[in-house]
Design a protein around this nucleic acid. Sequence first.
DNA 1: CTCCTATTGGTAATGGTTGTCATTATCAAT
DNA 2: ATTGATAATGACAACCATTACCAATAGGAG
Lengths: 156, 156
Amino acid sequence: MPNQNGTGPRWMHGQIKCCGYRMTKPREAILDVLANTQNHLSAEDIYMAVHKFYPNIGLTTVYRNLEVLVNIGMVVKFEFGEGKSKYELSDEYSSKGHHHHLVCKECYTVIDYSDFMKDEVSFLKSTENGLSEKYKFNITDHLIQFFGVCEKCTNK
Amino acid sequence: MPNQNGTGPRWMHGQIKCCGYRMTKPREAILDVLANTQNHLSAEDIYMAVHKFYPNIGLTTVYRNLEVLVNIGMVVKFEFGEGKSKYELSDEYSSKGHHHHLVCKECYTVIDYSDFMKDEVSFLKSTENGLSEKYKFNITDHLIQFFGVCEKCTNK
DNA sequence: CTCCTATTGGTAATGGTTGTCATTATCAAT
DNA sequence: ATTGATAATGACAACCATTACCAATAGGAG
């Protein structure tokens, strides 16, 4: 597992350089923020967190870099129905590992779960193969989310 | 199956009235549009279709009614990553029946599939039960989408 | 038919995200 | 270490889907 505390070796440089991108302060700061949270952050959340250390990094830059990081597969972008996108480090760069999401439709709290993964993975794999073949689709991703009302919102 | 051609009996009145809403021209027109397409329409798509017959129905009204219809469960709202929501009649009002989506990340073409449903449904049911209990979530919905590149975009 | 009130339509505002462009910083080659 | 090509940045404006607002209208129970 790569070192993820912003002051140590630059664990993320390799992937970035490999893809023909330069390693810059904003890029590093954004990855650090994502590596040091358990939450699902919006572009603005990330902007504010980065802003504390580098007050002159702009929101536009955050958006641009998130797009790059999504493209090279280091970050994943999600929509939970809140009207803004949320971002996470992708599985191979995160300490969370592969997981899916359980989303509260009222407060938009998101729970990561990795229970039931054995069943899910084999099920998804076979479905994916079937669909790829039948519809001539080159399938690269899947999205599974469960929606409901969390305990707190139920008792409100 | 309800009659879905705009000139016949008003198949949708019951559900609307039941929920305390009035049946209005725009409401009816929107449902007719959704009932007579195989595609996944955006609010603006629906607005334009409705506009041909009722040029004075505004986009705002379309949005408001879609919200109502989603709330009473006649319509389902989806995000495919295109930056705008798409709408479909829900399973029990649609001739499509229960299905999931296969989305092209490049052209945003959406294929409805209902293969593999037996496996999916049983898998989802058990996962849902497990998650509900473990996380004290009142689960009401799920979302499964596969993403990839369609045949046309692959050869481009 | 009447009245209450849900609904409408037009327009302005909102808010997340993207485009523009002059300036700056990265890094491979020297 | 210096240079030079160009990727990346930052500030601001533009964009676009969606929502808020409000006076005018229309559904439908009584």
